[in-house]
Design a protein around this nucleic acid. Structure first.
Lengths: 356, 356
DNA sequence: CTGAAAGCGCTAACAT
DNA sequence: ATGTTAGCGCTTTCAG
């Protein structure tokens, strides 16, 4: 019941306190038989070293912290998975905290991690407001994911503009003549996606581009309404290709178009932009860009390790900006290229794990 | 650069060390203006309290730990989300660790959490081997999720047998005459699901029940192969209803059946058993049981809080067994009842968040 | 409100 | 290889 300390273990094992400590941290310095005795005592007492004391006395822990704005978003999951895998590979542990959409909580977690002697902290930016985060961790390596920023610090982001261009290119190459883009450009991500689309479309002035961004357009039901509406338009007013600035929107639109009685992709082709695996539950598999969260997580951990190395060697220059951009790639599926018979090998894709 | 301590802050603010500590932990004991001065100094110095020292000196932290076997499984995500939400509501923080499929890592994380002065630890059982886990945390409230066990400890699980019965009942009520169940009963969960199916089917001896559980049957591709195979059977050998012991298998089977040229559900209806949102990316929405992970997480946190309360009041009885069973409910979708036109309200379901 | 001081449980030097 | 001891940074207590 009462807490067992290293002293209790020492007494139980009949050895010195320091020996127990050594048995724990430097087993090679202890005679095997002594080690066995100690381990036995530990087991008997159910002793679990007090990590706080351990850290306080020792140095830092080979652990990274990851702060996520929420857990129910595909990108966050990918980030978590990628970071976790990479951290493990590099010999680090990863602890994840979710702010559940609460921004105050988010920075409080970040602050908390910073005071935990962790080796580094990863934060997925929920808003553009990085000002609170950056200064917080001045003494702990920190990388901000899914954010572009030219201030000091380390940032890893998806190349959103490229996502837009790739999708636009795909649409044009498929012979689209009237493209409708749906989604509000409320976030930097969607804004840049739209810029990418626009940039590519300037090369193809013959293709009509219609931006539908009025009203509240963020969730699947919004996409549904818009999709159904677009599908009922007549003649030139009806697009033959719909691009959702997010996969969730595209999914909704897809269902809306089908609800209106049109076929996807025969009558209207549809594509998303952000490779969100959780939005793949459409009745027609959705063409989109790669799920890049995994890579974001990986790169984030790498950045942390680089920072640690830089500090160690004194190569670090404080107020420098490090921005990494992850290149996306197309995931072409039935919603733009028609029915793709699923083969056994493809079926693996059903298991999200493959993409994480 | 060098670490800032509470002493530095005190000096910077021109107050006593103890005052800073009070400002941090008992703001009400400090005069508002002094508090402002201190907070300002904290901000100026970028001070982050050393959590290790804080815990060592103080008591415990209002934080729960959650150990997950992996992150790419729907159930785990739901658990994490449910636990996170409930913890937050109860005024606790939640830290999540993933073992990435490594069982050794899993128990090491559990052990680690146990030594972190956390208020409690939640573990999703990856294997039936709870023997290592249970004793570990004798002095920290612990609850094991997704596990049934009659030993001492706290366990929260989905009622898998009920999942099986519900699906079987659904099949029979839809007029199924030849039901095929696919999936290996390698885990306690799937075993109990099968038992539930069998139990219900005993009430309906007129309905043929075929258990396909030979070979390696765990992933979507396996389901695909079996589905395609079953679809090509002739006459009475061909089932009119397929139950996948997991959603992943059912999804694979669904694609296999369609690849063989049959219609779902017209020729063969298909259902899963475990409400795994990540397996919903079928070309036909899959009927399954409720995603209960969320509830698992919630109940787990509740259990932890109950345990804390019990210890506080001394009501605790050590070696008692506490087993909770979460009742599942049907999610009837197109794979058994035909095309369901998606309505705007349903479209919300596309966003996994709704189900988490 | 201040200032001083006693640990929290452990690690890492040091001496033996 | 083993025993001893000085802190790690903080919270609390206690007397001013």
């Amino acid at each position: 019941m009462a807490k067992v300390t290293i002293g209790d273990v020492a007494r139980e094992a009949g050895v010195a306190l320091g020996t127990v400590s050594n048995a724990l941290n430097h087993p090679e310095r202890v005679r095997p038989e002594t080690l066995a005795i100690v381990n036995d005592a530990i087991r008997r007492l159910g002793y679990a070293p007090n990590q706080s004391a351990r850290l306080l006395a020792g140095g830092h822990s080979k652990t990274f912290g990851l702060v996520l704005p929420q857990l129910n978003h595909g990108l966050s999951l990918q980030i978590a998975s990628g970071a976790s895998t990479e951290a493990q590979r590099q010999g680090y542990s990863l602890l994840i905290a979710t702010a559940n959409g609460d921004e105050a909580l988010e920075s409080s977690y970040t602050r908390y991690f910073a005071g935990t002697q962790m080796s580094g902290v990863l934060v997925q930016a929920s808003s553009a407001d990085l000002t609170r985060i950056a200064p917080t961790a001045s003494r702990v390596p920190l990388a901000v994911l899914d954010a572009v920023c030219d201030g000091a610090g380390h940032y890893v982001s998806v190349d959103c503009a490229a996502q837009g261009s790739l999708i636009a290119e795909h649409a044009v190459s498929l012979g689209a003549t009237r493209i409708a883009v749906i989604g509000r450009t409320m976030t930097p991500q969607t804004t840049r996606r739209l810029e990418g689309i626009r940039a590519y479309m300037e090369l193809h002035p013959d293709v009509a581009l219609d931006i539908v961004d009025h009203g509240e357009i963020t969730q699947a039901p919004d996409g549904f309404m818009i999709g159904r509406h677009l599908a009922t338009q007549q003649g030139a007013a009806r697009p033959d290709f719909i691009i959702g600035l997010t996969d969730v929107l595209a999914c909704g639109a897809l269902e809306g178009v089908r609800a209106a009685g049109l076929r996807v992709p025969d009558d209207i082709a549809i594509a998303g932009c952000d490779g969100n695996p959780l939005a793949w539950s459409c009745s027609v598999p959705l063409t989109t860009c790669s799920p890049t969260g995994y890579e974001l997580g990986r790169r984030g951990v790498r950045s942390l390790i680089d920072q640690i190395e830089a500090r160690r060697t004194g190569t670090e220059d404080a107020s420098e900006n490090h921005q990494e951009l992850v290149r996306p790639f197309m995931l072409t599926r039935a919603s733009t290229v028609g029915r793709t018979t699923m083969q056994a090998s493809d079926a693996t894709g059903l298991n999200l794990g493959t993409f994480l």
